[in-house]
Design a protein around this nucleic acid. Structure first.
Length: 432
RNA sequence: GCCGGGGUGGGGUAGGCGGUUAUCCUACGGGACUGUGGAUCCUGCGACUCGGGUUCGAAUCUCGGCCCCGGCCCCA
């Protein structure tokens, strides 16, 4: 075998593609029901679009190259930055809020693993210019509904508000570098490690902050956690605004009929551009790669040179969704054999009836009936075998005897019955 | 980048302490059967991931590359 596909890429065959398309269509439907409109951005962008957003170190994880005019180009590793670029280029003066969604592949130069590829797909949205808590609540509601419509039931939605910890950092005058270090530690999700690092390595001097942080990231649970936060942080009024927003979000979630959520002060999302609510969605059965979606509120527009504006977005890791669906499929042992590739198979019985067969085929296709015609001059028996493999509902036998009467024989493959039908009546016959 | 397990026809596999023609299932082509399908039988096609080493001889042992799987790091 001469050529192999590049590491971390996949070929999708018919069955898999059918399932992916189904998933894609369900997501499209949900997003459009929430008034989102689809956009598409280029697969590659200026490298600086991504380094501005995420720092220079991101370059190790990118597919980047110089083009023939010496431009630094990168294949997109995610779609939020391109969308924000698109917004600042074309949509700044458009009526707000703007709701847009996208579906496309992204590229990262990483070691492939389960649920992690070098080319992978994201299905996501951005809500630009809505007032925070209600916009966030709606976005989360839409994410939940998407999963529900996909038939994925065992999900956990974890929500945090990064404004709280940012306010604390401000209160204690923690400089940005240390902040990022702490956020990174939180993001790892290892609480023991967090406590250890914080107490042993003197990342922060202030023991009060240490105590608060260690307690804070342990706050995980339902609505009642909000009271714990209140109690813990009552002396730090800088946090009031974010806590109030957080409460409001939780209230609005009720209105949007979302009850399956977990408040989790340990969610951080490594990115330093998130400013408000952040959330992650897990499907526990996926194990190490259980995160199927992530998002939050950010202010990237300003970073890219636009006016300051609230934005919220999230993206599904499409391939991970497919993993869950695949998982559930095999669990439920579903038979998948009843898929017809075409409704009608046209079988020219002799070489003299081929031309007429093609004419009939085109009539059916023009009437939106999926039709296959023998193109390989198969013998009679093989024609029926082929029709059977295609799972065609009808076979139209085009033979010389029939054509003399301007007719064909139509065979119902399920019942085995067949009937002589005038060519002019084929459409009516098949449509009944 | 690190650790572990792997790689045999299109798909799924057996063999694996070195030794003759590499096993079976399935798929595919042809035929039994030149105008009636899913069955059966016959038949054909088709593979040891790549490269070096050890050896009279390597699918088998050994080293390295590539790729896949799982985990770590990372995860915008």
């Amino acid at each position: 075998m001469e050529f192999k596909k590049p590491r971390g890429t996949r070929d999708f065959l018919f069955d898999e593609m059918r399932e992916r398309k189904e998933t894609e269509n369900i997501l499209r439907k949900v997003f459009e029901n929430y008034a989102y409109q689809e956009i598409k951005t280029p697969l590659f962008e200026d490298l600086s679009l991504f380094t501005t957003k995420s720092g220079e170190q991101i370059v190790d994880q990118l597919y980047n190259f110089k083009d023939k005019s010496d431009r630094e180009i990168a294949l997109r590793p995610e779609i939020t930055a391109p969308v924000v670029r698109l917004y600042t280029n074309e949509l700044q003066k458009t009526a707000k809020p703007i709701k847009l969604y996208y579906f496309g592949s992204c590229f990262r130069y990483e070691r492939p693993q389960k649920g992690r590829f070098r080319q992978f797909w994201q299905f996501g949205c951005e809500l630009i210019g809505a007032k925070s808590p209600e916009g966030e609540a709606e976005v989360i509601a839409m994410a939940e509904q998407s999963l529900e419509d996909l038939g994925i039931s065992t999900v956990e939605i974890h929500i945090n508000h990064l404004g709280i910890i940012r306010a604390l950092f401000k209160h204690f005058n923690i400089d940005t570098e240390i902040q990022e270090q702490i956020i990174l530690l939180i993001d790892k999700g290892d609480k023991k490690l967090f406590t250890k690092e914080l107490t042993e390595n003197d990342i922060v001097d202030d023991s009060k902050l240490k105590d608060i942080l260690i307690k804070l990231i342990d706050f995980v649970g339902n609505e009642s956690v909000l009271n714990d936060i209140d109690n813990l942080l009552k002396d730090y009024e800088e946090t009031n605004e974010s806590i109030a927003e957080f409460k409001q979000l939780i209230d609005y979630l009720k209105s949007f009929n979302v009850s399956n959520y977990t408040i989790n002060l340990g969610i951080a999302r490594g990115l330093d551009y998130y400013t408000g609510i952040v959330f992650e969605i897990y499907v526990p059965e996926l194990g190490a790669q259980k995160q199927v979606a992530g998002g939050g509120s950010y202010n990237l527009v300003e970073l890219f040179g636009g006016e300051k504006i609230e934005s919220t977005g999230f993206a599904f890791g499409f391939d991970r969704l497919m993993n869950v669906i695949e998982h559930d499929k095999t669990k439920n042992k579903e038979k998948n054999e009843d898929t017809s590739i075409v409704d009608v198979f046209i079988a020219p019985i002799s070489k003299d009836t081929r031309e007429k067969s093609f004419e009939i085929g085109q009539i059916l296709r023009n009437s939106n009936i999926s039709t296959e015609i023998d193109l390989s001059r198969k013998k009679f028996k093989k024609l029926l075998i082929t029709a059977n493999k295609l799972n065609a509902k009808y076979v139209i036998l085009v033979g010389e005897d029939e054509l003399e009467k301007d007719s064909v024989t139509i065979k119902n493959m399920a019942s085995g019955d067949q009937e002589l039908v005038a060519i002019d009546d084929i459409l009516d016959y098949i449509n009944l």
